[in-house]
Amino acid sequence: MIRLTEERFDPGAELTAFCAGRTESGAVASFVGIARGEGGAATALELQAYPGFTEGEIGRMVEAAFTRFSLHDALVIHRHGPIAPGEPIVMVATAAAHRREAFEACDYLMDYLKSRAPFWKKEHGPAGARWVEPTERDLDDLARWD
């Protein structure tokens, strides 16, 4: 399931719900990304999404992960709009028969979300605001899966 939201979400409650009722998935892995304050240099983050388009593109990444890692299920929650330091921005959870597939699929989905997902990110700080593009490190992380 893919959910874009402008509201805060509770990663613990989402993970509990994702695990509930599973009798055949022996492994659930999860990741939560939190907005960094950068020691006061980032006072707020603004993420723009293109509703309708952004979910579709993330959906294609999730489908690829299902095939590649024999997943049973996947959850992607992504915030957009203004986000304060300390708030969760993104959560990924993956369910599979065994832990290796669950860990790897979660890692893979995060690498794609960090570099390829259709979001435009603006950091607001005391020095002004700037649009952020993927870092070299994000692109190197993604290249691990080629």
Binding site: L47, Y50, I89, P118, F119, W120, K121, D138
Partner: peptide, 10 residues
């Protein structure tokens, strides 16, 4: 029609 600059990722 939407114009999309390079995406920053999430």
């Amino acid at each position: 029609v939407a114009f999309l600059p390079p995406m920053s990722g999430g």
